[in-house]
Each structure stands twice: as structure tokens, then as C-alpha cells.
């Protein structure tokens, strides 16, 4: 049976009825966005993968507490964010030095650039570099602002959904996104004004 077109709520109902195959579909649907979110918060690809596993297990165990009138997407991202925050707090209490920290920064960042087909090689190189810079600048942005921005820009979540995940008002969510964007723009401006990376390249 093809479950790829089934809505999240229908899948949740099927899992509650004992169909574990539906949970597999839900995981396929959310593994990449949640992994990305975990990576952005933890900044460690291996830890992010472990956290992804923990998030899915928590979702499965607590599925009975999910209320169908709410957004499943917001619910699962809330669990993911809380799990990551717990991990960050745990790390602050017991700091662990990762072996990855011995490698250089550029080697460590697993950023990838997608959709290059219609661009020439030079533009691709420039864009790769700028995306790489953006990824590094993004780490400077406070966690809440960064999460809000990426949920909005990359996952296309609504302000309402993001406000529920972050536990703040819609106004505060808009402000977080705006401030994150402003920070990135200010830090990227010197690169954009150099001439090589003209804004037109990206339009």
C-alpha cells in the first residue's frame, strides 16, 4: 500500500491502530528536516543523528498524547527542539571534547549546495563559497533566532507553527526571524560588495 500521499494525521491514526509501517513513512518524511534542525542546534553531525533517533523514539512513545486538532509538524519539531536543548544543557554540565574538534573548520562543516544544473562553473564555485560562509555566520546567531529563521526559510513553517515550537508569541517569532536575517545581512554585506558575488548571481 502506498502511504506517501497520506496526511500526517491519518498516519498517526494508523500507528495508533497498531500499523508500524505508517511510522516508517512518518520517519522518512521528517528525518531530513529534523536532522538539519538538530545539526544546526548541536553543530555535530554524529550527535545530530543520535538525537534524531531519540526524537523518533519519543514521538512513537508519546503518540497517544498528541491531539489531532493540532499541527503534527509543529508537535514533532517541538519534541526535536526540546530534545536538542536538553542535550545542550547536558553538554554544558559535562563538556565533552569531540575528536572532530581536532579537524579544521572547513572540513567539519557538511554543507552542500543543491540545484546547480543551470549555472556555470564559476558561479557555482562562488555560490558554494558564499553558502559556506553563510553556514559559518549562522553559527554566530543565537539559537532561538537561528531555529526560527531556518524553520521559516527552509521548512516553510508558518509563524503560528514556529511560535508554538519556540513557545513564544507570533510577534516575537517575527522579530526573531527579522533579527536573524539582519545579522546575516550585515555579516554577508562585505562579501556581497566585493564585486565577485553580485546579488544578481543569486536572483
Amino acid at each position: 500500500m502506498d502511504l506517501s500521499d497520506t496526511t500526517d494525521l491519518d498516519l498517526v491514526q494508523e500507528i495508533r491502530d497498531g500499523n508500524t509501517q505508517s511510522f516508517q513513512v512518518l520517519m522518512d518524511r521528517y528525518k531530513n528536516p529534523i536532522y538539519q534542525m538538530a545539526y544546526r542546534m548541536i553543530l555535530d553531525p554524529f550527535e545530530a543523528e543520535d538525537l534524531l533517533q531519540v526524537v523518533f523514539l519519543q514521538v512513537y512513545r508519546n503518540l497517544s498524547t498528541f491531539k489531532p486538532q493540532g499541527s503534527f509538524r509543529a508537535w514533532i519539531f517541538t519534541i526535536a527542539r526540546n530534545t536538542c536543548l536538553n542535550e545542550i544543557r547536558r553538554r554544558r554540565r559535562k563538556p565533552v571534547k569531540s575528536l572532530d574538534e581536532l579537524t579544521s573548520d572547513s572540513q567539519k562543516i557538511p554543507f552542500q549546495v543543491v540545484d546547480h544544473e543551470q549555472q556555470n562553473a564559476n558561479q557555482i564555485l562562488l555560490q558554494d563559497e558564499l553558502v559556506d560562509i553563510l553556514g559559518r555566520i549562522l553559527k554566530e546567531v543565537p539559537e532561538k533566532q537561528r531555529t526560527a529563521l531556518l524553520l521559516y526559510q527552509q521548512e516553510n513553517l508558518s509563524y503560528d507553527e514556529i511560535s508554538k515550537i519556540l513557545g513564544c508569541s507570533i510577534g516575537a517569532t517575527k522579530s526573531l526571524i527579522f533579527r536573524a536575517r539582519e545579522h546575516l545581512k550585515v555579516r554577508l554585506r562585505p562579501y556581497l560588495n566585493e564585486g565577485a558575488w553580485t546579488p544578481a548571481v543569486f536572483l
Binding site: 552542500q112 553563510l134 553556514g135 536575517r181 543569486f202
Partner: peptide, 19 residues
């Protein structure tokens, strides 16, 4: 133009997939 550049870069920002 600056805002649209930012949008474009953020859309392209992607981390490697999990196992």
C-alpha cells in the same frame, strides 16, 4: 536584492542527510 540573495542562499544551505 539583498533580501532575495539571502533567501536564495538560505534555501541552498543544506546539511548532509542522516544515515
Amino acid at each position: 536584492q539583498e533580501d532575495k540573495t539571502m533567501d536564495s542562499l538560505l534555501k541552498q544551505l543544506s546539511v548532509s542527510a542522516p544515515s
